[in-house]
Amino acid sequence: MTMLHTVNKSPFESKAFDTCLGLAKSGSTILLIEDGVYAATTGNSVADKIKNTSDINFCVLGADAQARGIEAKLAEGIKVVDYEGFVDLVAEHDTVQAWL
């Protein structure tokens, strides 16, 4: 079983990202969308959590990062996907869990 998790809330506003990270299994993917993309930026108080999690794939939706002007601040190792890539991720995983 592989699971795709999506998080659409800022990690500074909501516990959704923390909860997701706590429950996500090794080998699963966390796709950050909408205000969730802020979790993928460097130099902030959340950055270490992603850095210290090597067994989960982190992706961000590029359009959401561009809209917020943070594309250049994305942490290393974060994969940027477009809407088609989003669809591919959904297709590649067995289930999708949206952490609203």
Binding site: S10, F12, E13, D35, Y38, G62, A63, D64, Q66, A67, R68, G69, I70, E71, A72, D82
Partner: peptide, 23 residues
């Protein structure tokens, strides 16, 4: 304050999300 500071970031390009940028 808080996430509100993100409103002022440079280089916001909303073309991809189909919303008007109010930056």
């Amino acid at each position: 304050i808080g996430d509100g500071v993100y409103q002022l970031t440079k280089g916001q390009n909303t073309k991809g999300i189909g919303q008007k940028s109010f930056s």
